[in-house]
Amino acid sequence: MQNEKTVSVLNDLLNITNDRIEGFSKVEDKVWDTYSPLKSDYDEMVNQSQTMKAELMSLITQRGGDPDNTTSTAGAIHRAWIDLKNSFSGDKAESTLENVVFGEEAAIDAYQDALDSGDLCPESSRVVSDQLHHLKSSYSKFSNLNEMKN
């Protein structure tokens, strides 16, 4: 039973990680004209997300589960909202990066909830805790956008 709970929680985190990857694909290159200091951090976040995805899929498989390699419904709705909001936004670069920050906050909350649930096995807790650390580090780099403009 514990394994099923662990797999379920890990699959939820996999969906959230896939949401991040999908969300990152919405950031257009023109954003970096205004926020060039964040470009390397952003690239690192994209790469880190791919690593996190692989780690979660491995943990799920090791526990006899099938990775749910999809995005969440909430993430799809949020991305549709971002598209709509950006179509009316005056400052698309800032608005786009504010959405990155919002997504990172949601991911941090989900990861913390997963750790607090008590449903993760020790190895999974360690990996999820490490991933949460990376999320918080990324979030801190993007949380003060106004200070980052050229």
Rank of each mutant, 00 (worst) to 15 (best):
S117I: 06
D33V: 13
I16P: 00
D83W: 10
Q48I: 01
K85V: 13
T51M: 01
D91G: 07
S89I: 08
S87R: 07
Q50V: 00
D91Q: 14
F88M: 13
S58K: 15
L14P: 03
T34R: 08
V128I: 10
G65R: 06
L59F: 04
I60S: 08
G65Y: 05
S124T: 08
N3C: 08
I16W: 02
L120H: 10
E44K: 10
D130S: 14
A114T: 11
S40M: 02
P122D: 15
R63W: 06
Q48N: 12
F88R: 09
S25W: 03
G75P: 02
K39T: 09
Q50A: 02
W81I: 15
F88C: 09
R126M: 13
M52I: 05
T70L: 12
A106F: 01
D68I: 12
A80M: 14
L84V: 10
K92N: 09
D91K: 11
I21H: 01
V9I: 15
G64Q: 11
V9K: 03
A114M: 10
H134Y: 11
L120P: 10
G118N: 01
K5G: 12
T6E: 12
D43L: 00
A110S: 14
T61P: 02
S40V: 04
A93T: 05
I21C: 05
S117C: 08
S25V: 05
E105D: 14
D113W: 02
Q131V: 01
M52L: 08
D19G: 05
D113L: 09
V31R: 05
A106W: 00
L120M: 05
S36R: 10
Y111Q: 11
S72T: 12
A106E: 06
K39Q: 15
V127W: 02
D83G: 15
E94N: 07
L56N: 04
A74K: 14
C121F: 09
A106D: 07
Q112V: 05
S25L: 00
G23T: 00
T51A: 04
D12M: 12
S72K: 12
S40N: 13
L56R: 00
I21E: 00
T70K: 15
K92V: 14
K53I: 00
R79N: 11
I16F: 00
Q131T: 01
T71G: 15
